[in-house]
Write a protein that binds this DNA or RNA. Structure first.
Length: 886
RNA sequence: AGGCACGUAGCUCAGUGGGAGAGCACCACCUUGACACGGUGGGGGUCGGCGGUUCAAUCCCGCCCGUGCCUACCA
């Protein structure tokens, strides 16, 4: 008799629901944004994952949160664009493809640049969409028709345009600078790409003899081989021990080079001997010291990490071999004072883990301070807000101490730098279009720079390059600035700050209005997850095991602001239980809706019906306020409490009377409330757990072929009057109190009980007799104002007492203990209230409302105490002083 | 070393200037016609420590201890 698609099976099976609904949503174009739309726009760009990447927990979390926002805003009726894509990940991708080539016994040099690039594109076409498919499995509602890749023609054009403009503004320049060099990748790395790792090394103390005289000076170093590039020895200007030596000359051992002793405040007199060898070619501090004092720079390394001709007899050796030889030779000449164990930090290549060598090289740099100033202002004046706000400190600190950015990379995979050098006059021609002739001398003998730009350079343009910049496109006009950027805290420098700088500089506006920094997921022991710790969790495995909705719900429900969280199986199992609860509530609804006619006129609902609708409205309002503030956990909590604690625990139980009763009108009204409230709850949950909510929604009667997302959120219902609110509160309290007596006295669940109410409660009890009987297990409710029967447990409910008759006289002993406990608790409460009210300063200085509340509280507690005490006396008289039981 | 968080029930975590909550775990009873991934009831916490501000502090301030993350780096 029903035209519904299916009956809900006993258990929810996530897999088929996930693939079915995701496919239908895509077909229906639900995720498409439109530029020709009068609705308010809401937009986000996805932090583009690395094209070589696989979905890890960080992606899963961030994407779940963004999807929650995107779906929520769509359901609010906005024109939502969530723009997806990937970045080309210069080094990572090149390393992957080179590894594949190596298996075929080839290097990229065997292929040549063009063939190698083709090889990478080929690789991308086969493997580059893996992470996109994984995001889809997670349910992400991105507008896939607008998927972008940082190497797309449009985005590449944006990169060139930006490079050329910055060059013309003298913000991009070439310079010789000490850079981080990866000898394996043979490319420069940014500081951020060369993280430090702790190693157990040695600290060598070496003696440098003075040129004129028998004295010598001792220096300490962890990298003795770099002495081959020393051009000075430095001491602190205020260090009296060495004051006489400053300006004299030492003879550098092994190479016999004469180098000066200089004074520079960067030297820490407390460390080691207080004198330091200065190697401007291979140490950041020394490089800066060298610039200050105009010391010569000697580079002793070849690009592959071997020593070059400047190392004299050590040329051709690896750094490691050279270190051993240098130490041995120094020792032989009695110049090695000592070596001791020393833990220190060395930089390694983020991508291949090779030791990074600082070395001087000519690179393209970008001046950052002029762009940093407006970027700082945009956050200071609130045009961009960080959530949680404390991350602003991180942002400010980095931008206030910003240094030039080395943007060139000696790779073959990436955006090739649009700069050509003239063979004849050596001048650079920088141009968005490939030039025919040198700008300086007109020569046609031009060579394009072989380097490419760092990947982050193109990522920094992502919020506007993906929307068509530099053209003035409808997409840009509609969706820029974007609404929210959601990402991880450790990426603020790499990406967020650079997007803000580039966005302001090139579009004149901020790239996004809100930056949400999501929590970090820790393992069950509270440690950061990492491959090296092998404590990672594979999101796809979890999704397969527990279902994607359970996984998403867990991540969202744990995302409290400003706090990381631990993830383990327990958390996810809890989410699955919640989904099962929802599922079973839906099955209950379905069973009771078999004859439901959505179009039939229904009379106004019962108090229960009107109450649960109001509770739904309040839960949705709380959830939506929470989402507005990025308090994802609070949103989840509001919905959870409603579904489980109110809809399932109370409404369904209360509605059973009408649903299963004889009054057809009452039944129809409750059916309507049941289905509409459930649908409203599903709508509220849908942004967080899209699949199961759609699955249930589509199985409910009265569907019109549209999807849950298209229905949006339910309209508000009229509020309850104060009287109605009091009535439902009192009913719930009565039921709770009686259940409490049953539980505390250990009455068997089957045991029927008789309850005596005062006549004043008659109206309440009679209006809700069905609920009271079924939910308390009462067989009879009586009304009497005289003293309650002796054989009874008495409890107090908002202003009146109710008595539960006890069949078994021995239970009075338990009742005695129950009352004694209640009395103890009341006395405790009373003494705390008294402590306040007896303090004259409290009455004098506390807010009058607070004082009044305490007075009220005291009055209520005293009343209650008197009533409990009276009853206690009576029970004591019956049972005797020892109580009913031993 | 500096910065930023965090420390609340056995565990994972919410929360608030007026005597603290949830989920899981635990105890008791219950295979009741949605649901044992369940129901009803219950026990359990000097809210990290020490000071300060306040009539009142778990909450605000300072110091200390512990944990985590980030940044920088001593040759």
């Amino acid at each position: 008799m029903s035209d519904r698609r299916t009956d809900l099976p006993k258990r929810f099976d996530p897999r088929p629901a996930e693939s079915r609904w995701y496919g239908e949503w895509l077909t229906a174009g639900l995720f498409r944004a439109s530029v020709d739309d009068s609705r308010e726009a809401y937009s986000m760009v996805i932090p583009p994952p690395n094209v070589t990447g696989v979905l890890h927990l960080g992606h899963a979390l961030n994407s779940s949160l963004q999807d929650t926002l995107a779906r929520h805003e769509r359901m609010l009726g906005k024109n939502v664009l969530w723009l997806p894509g990937t970045d080309h990940a210069g080094i990572a991708t090149q390393v992957v493809v080179e590894r594949e080539l190596a298996q075929r016994g080839k290097t990229r040099h065997d292929l040549g640049r063009e063939a190698f690039e083709a090889e990478v594109w080929e690789w991308k076409s086969h493997h580059g969409s893996r992470i996109i498919e994984q995001l889809q499995a997670l349910g992400c509602s991105c507008d896939w028709s607008r998927e972008r890749f940082t190497m797309d023609p449009g985005l590449s054009r944006a990169v060139r345009e930006v490079f050329v403009r910055l060059y013309e503004q003298s913000l991009i320049y070439r310079d010789e600078f000490l850079v981080n060099w990866c000898p394996r990748c043979t490319t420069v790395l940014s500081d951020l790409e060369s993280p430090y790792h702790t190693v157990e090394g040695q600290l060598f103390t070496i003696r440098y003899p003075l040129l004129d005289g028998p004295e010598s000076i001792q220096v300490a170093t962890t990298r003795p081989e770099t002495m081959l590039g020393d051009t000075a020895v430095a001491v602190h200007p205020d260090d009296e021990r060495y004051a006489a030596l400053v300006g004299r000359t030492v003879r550098l051992p092994l190479l016999d080079r004469e180098i000066p002793i200089v004074a520079d405040p960067f030297v820490d007199p407390e460390f080691g001997s207080g004198a330091v060898k200065v190697t401007p070619g291979h140490d950041p501090n020394d490089f800066e010291c060298g610039r200050r004092l105009q010391l010569p720079v000697i580079n002793i390394l070849n690009p592959d990490g071997t020593l070059n001709e400047n190392a004299g007899p050590y040329a051709g050796l690896s750094v490691r071999a050279a270190r051993e030889r240098v130490v041995a030779d120094l020792d032989a000449q009695n110049l090695l004072i000592r070596s001791e164990r020393h833990t220190h930090e060395v930089p390694r290549c983020d991508r291949c883990d090779t030791l990074v060598e600082p070395l001087v090289s000519e690179q393209w740099f970008m001046r950052m301070e002029p762009l940093a100033r407006p970027a700082l202002a945009a956050v200071r004046d609130g045009r961009i807000a960080f959530h949680p706000r404390s991350w602003e400190n991180t942002y400010f600190h980095w931008l206030e101490n910003i240094r030039p950015w080395a943007i060139s990379r000696q790779l073959w995979w990436g955006h090739r730098i649009p700069a050509w050098r003239c063979d004849d006059c050596r001048e650079w021609t920088v141009s968005a279009e490939d030039p025919d002739a040198c700008r300086a001398c007109g020569s046609a003998a031009l060579q394009q720079d072989g380097d490419v730009l760092e990947t982050w350079f193109s990522s920094a343009l992502w919020p506007f390059s993906t929307l068509g910049w530099p053209d003035d496109t409808p997409e840009l006009r509609t969706f820029y600035p974007t609404s929210v950027l959601s990402t991880a805290g450790d990426i603020i420098f790499f990406w967020v700050a650079r997007m803000i700088m580039m966005g302001l500089h090139f579009t004149g506006d901020v790239p996004f209005r809100h930056v949400y920094i999501h929590p970090l997921i820790l393992d069950p022991e509270g440690k950061k997850m990492s491959k090296s710790r092998s404590n990672t969790i594979d999101p796809l495995e979890v999704m397969g095991e527990h279902g994607t909705d359970a996984f998403r719900w867990t991540l969202v429900a744990l995302s409290a602001q400003g706090r990381n969280f631990r993830l383990g199986d327990d958390q996810i199992a809890g989410s699955r239980a919640f989904i099962t609860k929802l599922w079973n509530a839906a099955r209950f609804a379905q069973m009771n809706l078999a004859d439901f006619d959505a179009d039939a006129p229904a009379r106004a609902g019962s108090l229960y019906d009107r109450w649960i609708r109001v509770r739904l409205d309040e839960a949705l309002a709380r959830a939506h306020r929470a989402l507005d503030d990025f308090r994802f956990n609070d949103a989840a909590d509001a919905l959870y409490q409603f579904v489980w604690g109110e809809f399932c625990d109370w409404y369904i139980e209360l509605a059973k009377q009408a649903l299963q009763g004889d009054d057809a009108d009452a039944r129809r009204a409750s059916q309507r409330t049941l289905v509409e409230t459930l649908a409203g709850a599903l709508a509220g949950l849908h942004p967080i757990m899209p699949f199961v909510t759609e699955e249930i929604f589509q199985a409910l009667p009265g569907r019109d072929g549209r999807f849950l997302m298209q229905h949006g959120y339910p309209k508000q219902s009229p509020p309850l009057s104060n009287e109605e609110q009091r009535e439902i509160d009192a009913l719930i309290e009565v039921i709770r109190r009686v259940r409490q007596i049953r539980g505390e006295l250990g009455l068997a669940p089957q045991a029927r009980i008789r309850i005596t109410f005062p006549t004043a409660a008659a109206q309440l009890v009679e209006s809700h007799a069905g609920a009271i009987h079924s939910l308390t297990g009462a067989s009879e409710c009586r009304f009497a104002d005289e003293e309650p029967p002796e054989q009874a447990a008495v409890t107090r409910v908002s202003g009146f007492s109710i008595a539960v008759e006890l069949e078994d006289p021995s239970l009075l002993g338990d009742e005695l203990r129950r009352l004694e406990k209640a009395l103890r608790n009341l006395d405790k409460d009373l003494s705390f209230v008294a402590k306040k009210l007896d303090n004259p300063k409290f009455r004098e200085r506390a807010k009058p409302a607070v004082v009044e509340a305490e007075v009220e509280k005291q009055k209520r507690l005293r009343d209650e105490r008197a009533s409990v005490e009276e009853r206690l006396d009576r029970v004591r008289r019956i049972v005797g002083p020892g109580g009913g039981r031993p």
